[in-house]
Computed example of a mutant assay.
Amino acid sequence: MLTLIGFDVSNYFNMVKLALAIKGIEYKTVILYPNQTDEYLLKSPMGKVPALETDQGVLTETNVILEYLDEAYPNSPLYPGSTFEKAKIRELVKMAELYIELPARRCHSEAFFGQKVDDLTKKEVKRALYKGIEGIARSAKFNPYLAGEQLTAADIVFLYSADLAAAVAGKLFAVDLLEMAPGAKQLMDKLNQLDDVIQIAEDRKLANIEFKKYIASLS
């Protein structure tokens, strides 16, 4: 049986968790925060989460895990279609991560934990998020999902990237980021109504209590 390592506040952990739920894959969970212990570095070379233990070994990096799950468990495909269509889904996954999730992450400390971020960083993040969401708007179909009529890995990554990025943009820049990509807000509403997404949100709320204690212990 697969074992998913990580914690329920991590958006990347939740991307894999949702993929497993959509595909109906049984798995175990080991709750663990990122760390640099020798034991964990043998599993996750950078000490990051999530990590997925399989019978063949451990996989890290969320996009790699999503692609592995789709090949190993082909039911309810997350990368459906022709070779080109699959590549377009991978393109949207990469765009959501590089141009939405990662820029916003630079301001998570101020938006969510009350730790001040310098003005230059915020200026760079604001510019990057504008460019990123505009790029998504040009690339995605929103019909109703990013790649068309079927939910794909691109929607999973967008869901758990855009929600945090939109919160950053709203709190720090007073901007409704999702309004900048017509169809994005409707897509987020649709995804957030899924039973699996609702359950993951509940799990995240509960886990956030312990996570805040963990963050406080580091300071």
Rank of each mutant, 00 (worst) to 15 (best):
M1H: 04
L4S: 06
I5L: 01
I5C: 05
S10E: 04
N11G: 15
F13M: 02
K17E: 14
L18Q: 12
L18P: 08
A19M: 07
A19E: 10
A21R: 15
G24R: 08
G24L: 12
I25F: 04
L32G: 04
P34D: 06
Q36D: 09
Y40P: 06
Y40K: 08
L41V: 02
L41G: 06
L41N: 07
L42E: 14
K43N: 00
S44N: 09
S44G: 01
P45T: 01
P45V: 07
G47A: 03
G47K: 00
L52E: 02
L52H: 01
E53V: 10
E53Q: 08
E53D: 07
T54M: 09
D55S: 10
Q56Y: 10
G57N: 02
T60W: 04
E61W: 10
T62M: 07
I65N: 10
L66Y: 05
D70A: 05
D70M: 09
A72M: 12
Y73T: 06
Y73M: 07
N75A: 15
N75E: 15
L78S: 00
L78F: 09
P80E: 09
G81N: 04
T83Y: 09
F84G: 05
F84D: 12
R90F: 09
L92Q: 03
M95R: 05
M95V: 14
A96T: 13
L98N: 13
L98I: 05
L98Y: 12
Y99V: 11
E101V: 11
L102K: 14
H108M: 15
S109D: 14
E110V: 03
E110A: 07
F112R: 14
V117Y: 02
V117K: 06
D118M: 01
D119V: 14
D119G: 08
L120R: 13
E124W: 09
V125E: 00
K126C: 12
K126H: 15
R127P: 01
A128F: 09
L129R: 02
Y130G: 10
K131Q: 13
K131T: 09
I136Q: 02
S139I: 08
S139T: 14
N143W: 00
Y145N: 05
L146K: 01
E149I: 12
Q150A: 08
T152E: 01
A153Y: 04
A153C: 00
A153G: 01
A153D: 04
A153V: 04
A154M: 11
A154R: 08
A154D: 05
V157D: 01
V157F: 07
S161W: 09
D163I: 13
A169S: 10
A169H: 01
K171D: 03
K171N: 03
K171V: 00
L172W: 00
D176S: 08
L177F: 04
L178C: 01
E179T: 13
E179M: 11
A184Q: 04
A184D: 04
Q186F: 05
L187A: 00
L187K: 05
L187N: 10
L187H: 05
D189W: 08
D189K: 14
N192T: 13
Q193F: 03
Q193G: 05
V197W: 05
I200C: 01
E202W: 00
R204I: 06
K205S: 14
Y214T: 11
I215R: 15
I215S: 12
A216C: 12
L218W: 05
S219W: 11
